[in-house]
Structure formats: structure tokens, C-alpha cells
């Protein structure tokens, strides 16, 4: 198995650095070293930049992969959008020699080359396939006892249809299984596989309409009486976390569901404190949730 370089993307390091810290800390506990991907850029975002200019999208994506290949690493993403871009660009370039040649002609100007000899992984499918549910369970030192709304996100599932269809055929459960390995209960709720609303540049183009999609999801999650939302993508994370504030201001609602990335949930189950994982740095208050972690009422 190749070593991994951590591809940060934009939203995690620049809005929710707790996700970056949680990834580094949990992987360190797993005994897996993550190399920094120095000089990496935006992936660039799959629905936005791919639809503005596909050549630009492929060129910057191939540079990010090339930086990782130069260290003989596979790429590890912690964001669905980054996964979609890097996985799909990697696939297109590996299967189209002319396209690869075109992109490499540009990359040569910056001293890089896309060789296409490595892989792109998403943290959730990586943990599921390489560590396994049992492997995660064995590393849990502080089992959780909470009701969780799992949000897969569209761009975790879609690239896997091409890359590893056995994970996404029939009932999709791999993410729920990883969540339950921490002791938490993944609660079923209406329209669970629905989009968060933010993707494809819609958040910038039609902000209010995207929030109405988010509100529908929040309503269903709240009906299921969950203690928190668990996602696999900093952009979904942003839409749910800062979205609750926007929705409450606009619709006189009072949503207050804590939003955590899976690596933050795993960190709690590995005995790390909420503060070490940046769970206290959200827009929507998590103070009540943190109190319940500390007084043990959300712990097994």
C-alpha cells in the first residue's frame, strides 16, 4: 500500500481547520503518517470550475496529483468535492492518452508531470477498506452513545459508482458502519441521501434556494431527534453549520444541531477532547453538545 499525502482543499484549512487537525490526530493514532502536500491548490471544484473551462479544471487537478506522485504517494482527500475532481480527473487522464499529453504539455511549463501511477482516495472509503470497521472498533477507547444523522454527500457516492461500485450498489451502508464502530447510532431519516444544497456553484448562484434545500434536510434530521450531523465533506459541513444561522435568521426557526466531520467524531471516540478537534469552533453553537460529552451523557 502506498503512503498518503493529505490533500486539504479550500474549506477545511481556510474555514474549518478543526477537520484538518482531527484528520492528522486520528491518523497519527492509526499509525499512518500523512505527508503534507506542499504547494497544492484548489482541487479545483468539480461543478464550478469544470463547467467554466474543462481544460483548466483538468490542468490544475493534474498538478495536484502530480505533486503527490512526486512523493510516491497516493492522494488522501477529506472532502467530497475534492474527491470528485481528483478521482474523475485522474480517471480521465489515465484513460485518454491524448488528453494526458495535452495536460502534460502545460504542466511541463511548471516542471511537473502527471504520470498516472497512483490513486486518489477519500478518507471514508479508505478507512472502510484499508482499516475496516473492526479495525476502527478496536481503536475506540472512549465509545460514544449518541444518535447521529449521517450525511453521505453526493460527491462521495457518485465517484464510487465508477471506482468501486460494490460500496454503492443496493443499500449504501459503508459510512453508517464506520459511524457505528464508534458506538454511536446512525439514525434513519427521511430523504437521507438528499443533497445538502450547496454544490455545483449553486451556493454562489442561488444562495436562498440552496438554503431551502438545506432546511428541508435539517427538518428531517431534527424529526429524527439526533444529537449531531456527521458528514464527510467540509463544504456540506459549511452549508449545514453556517446554514443553520442563515436559516434561523431568515425563517424564525431555531435550529441548533452540532455539525461534525467524521474525523472529529472518530477523534472523540479515540479519547481526544472536543477542543483538540475544533468542535468548539463551529458557527452553530456546540457548547451543550460538548457539555454532554464532558459529563458523560453522550458517552457509553
Amino acid at each position: 500500500m502506498s503512503n498518503l499525502s493529505l490533500f486539504l482543499g479550500c474549506v477545511a484549512p481556510n474555514r474549518y481547520p478543526g477537520i484538518e487537525a482531527a484528520t492528522k490526530k486520528t491518523f497519527s493514532k492509526l499509525g499512518i503518517e500523512l505527508d503534507d502536500l506542499e504547494g497544492a491548490s484548489c482541487c479545483p471544484a468539480p461543478g464550478v470550475f469544470r463547467s467554466f473551462d474543462k481544460v483548466t479544471w483538468l490542468t490544475l487537478a493534474s498538478r495536484n496529483i502530480a505533486l503527490s506522485e512526486e512523493m510516491d504517494d497516493d492522494v488522501l482527500t477529506i472532502c467530497n468535492g475534492c474527491y470528485s475532481t481528483l478521482k474523475e480527473a485522474d480517471h480521465e487522464l489515465k484513460s485518454d492518452a491524448d488528453l494526458k499529453k495535452d495536460v502534460n504539455e502545460k504542466l511541463f511549463e511548471t516542471g511537473h508531470e502527471f504520470r498516472g501511477q497512483h490513486d486518489v482516495r477519500h478518507v471514508i472509503e479508505y478507512l472502510y477498506q484499508e482499516i475496516g470497521v473492526e479495525g476502527i472498533r478496536e481503536l475506540v477507547t472512549a465509545p460514544l452513545n449518541m444518535r447521529v444523522a449521517v450525511h453521505y454527500g453526493c460527491h462521495l457516492v457518485q465517484p464510487l459508482k465508477e471506482a468501486d461500485s460494490r460500496l454503492v450498489s443496493g443499500d449504501i451502508t459503508f459510512f453508517d458502519e464506520l459511524v457505528e464502530a464508534t458506538g454511536a447510532t446512525s439514525v434513519d431519516y427521511e430523504d437521507k441521501m438528499m443533497c445538502c444544497g450547496a454544490g455545483g456553484g449553486a451556493r454562489a448562484a442561488a444562495h436562498d434556494a440552496t438554503l431551502r434545500i438545506t432546511e428541508k434536510k435539517l427538518e428531517n434530521m431534527a424529526d429524527a431527534q439526533v444529537d449531531c450531523i456527521i458528514n464527510a465533506c467540509p463544504f456540506c459541513h459549511l452549508q449545514f453549520d453556517s446554514g443553520q444561522k442563515d436559516i434561523n435568521e431568515g425563517s424564525c426557526t431555531s435550529y441548533g444541531i452540532p455539525v461534525l466531520h467524521y474525523t472529529q467524531l472518530l477523534g472523540l471516540a479515540m479519547g481526544l477532547s472536543p477542543e483538540e478537534l475544533g468542535i468548539d469552533l463551529n458557527v452553530t453553537s456546540t457548547s451543550e453538545f460538548i457539555e454532554k460529552i464532558n459529563d458523560g451523557s453522550l458517552m457509553a
Partner: peptide, 14 residues
Amino acid sequence: PPTVQASIEGLSEI
């Protein structure tokens, strides 16, 4: 973060 935001050379490549 250790991305183009900490690398003048990286940003110039972009």
C-alpha cells in the same frame, strides 16, 4: 496551511 498559501513558487505555477 502548507498549500499555495504558504508557497510563492506554488502560486506562481498556478
